[in-house]
Design a binder for these strands. Structure first.
Lengths: 199, 199
DNA sequence: TCATTAAATGACAATTCGTCATTAATATAA
DNA sequence: TTATATTAATGACGAATTGTCATTTAATGA
């Protein structure tokens, strides 16, 4: 009776195996220097088979980015939980991005590339999930701002949504420049300084 | 006697014509949706001829980005000149980026794409020029910081190099999100607030 | 006028993509 | 167990596109 269920599991497993192989290859050689043939060879499948699991090469790339986004989102959540005050939560979440960047550089660049490619939901329905995860992360930053303002650790004249948006975008771009630790710390301090309530 | 010189001019002219056509196509359809054949057709040249003027498709793309960088650099210079104090120069240069983004969205995204592709100087010698223009722009921001610190419009505990770097990177990434005017203004204010001397 | 140099051409091989008719494997029913 | 139906996998194929190079065309100047 559970045949169908097992089939489903196996399919999921195979899908994941493909992503495993693909991400290893993409991370080491870059998107353009990996062919579907390469992925097929390493997974010991025929090229055509890959297309039973993914629409095309981009589709695999998005799947990898989603894995990364989930990890990043988890780190965000940790930061959010650990921080006691609003401003502290914000700081820890900014540092979480840095942590992610260092621990998972492959995922980091994959996410960046995916964003700049601008896939649309019509062609790639998984982009819904991307948006959803992103929204979840953003909501945490927003919450931290609101809490900070209410409790007086964040300046009351700060617009939570705008500031949350700007801070996360800025953090991202600083990391895109492959900066030294020192610069990142400095950037975090600068950002916090611009929102901190110092009265 | 000036035959060689004229030849040189004509060659330069043709090169520019190719860039003209290519940028029109790239801007309207995006890099991946433009073929060398398309560019050849519109320039009324054979495909092979394009390769006499450019190493390959990426090479054309870089040439377009360089055009954009020169324009942006000019806007930077304007802002630098117009501003009376250090902080004012900084503000005007940040707004110059925004101005560039609005007036030349095609160049803006081309530059962004080029950066994320990470071309190296060995394969693409023109990347030297890219670096040089970039360095020139950066130097102006840096100068403005130094002046601001000396004259007291910028906080004295700000590290000019780091802050200059972070500010420009942040501005760029905010724009990458296709923001509303309102958000950009807010971002500029936030950034300035973090470096302003308010004593 | 004619030989030399420079510019342009387009046919070619190579790469890689995504499809699809066919084959193989697995599950279900008799 | 055997036959049938369903699901999964295959790889040959056509299409698109890239960059090259031997050949042709045009321009120069002796």
């Amino acid at each position: 009776m559970s045949t169908a269920a097992r089939r489903e599991r196996e399919k999921e497993k195979r899908r994941n195996d493909i992503i495993d192989v693909a991400e290893r290859l993409f991370f080491s050689r870059g998107y353009d220097n990996v062919t579907m043939e390469d992925i097929a060879r390493e997974t010991e499948l025929a090229r055509g088979t890959l297309y039973l699991y993914f629409k095309n090469k981009d589709d695999i790339y998005i799947a990898i980015a989603i894995r990364g986004l989930k990890i990043l989102n988890g780190l965000f959540r940790e930061g959010y939980m650990k921080g006691n005050t609003g401003i502290e939560k914000i700081k820890l979440m900014l540092l979480a991005v840095y942590d992610f960047y260092r621990k998972y550089p492959g995922y980091y660049t994959t996410i960046g590339n995916m964003q700049s490619r601008g896939f649309n939901k019509e062609d790639y329905p998984e982009m819904e999930e991307v948006e959803s995860i992103h929204g979840d992360s953003f909501r945490m930053v927003l919450d931290a701002f609101n809490m900070g303002i209410k409790k007086g650790t964040v300046r009351s004249d700060v617009d939570p949504a705008k500031a949350a948006f700007i801070l996360t975008a800025s953090m991202q771009s600083v990391l895109n420049t492959s900066p030294a630790d020192e610069l990142v710390e400095y950037a975090v301090d600068m950002m916090l300084r611009s929102i901190e309530d110092t009265k």
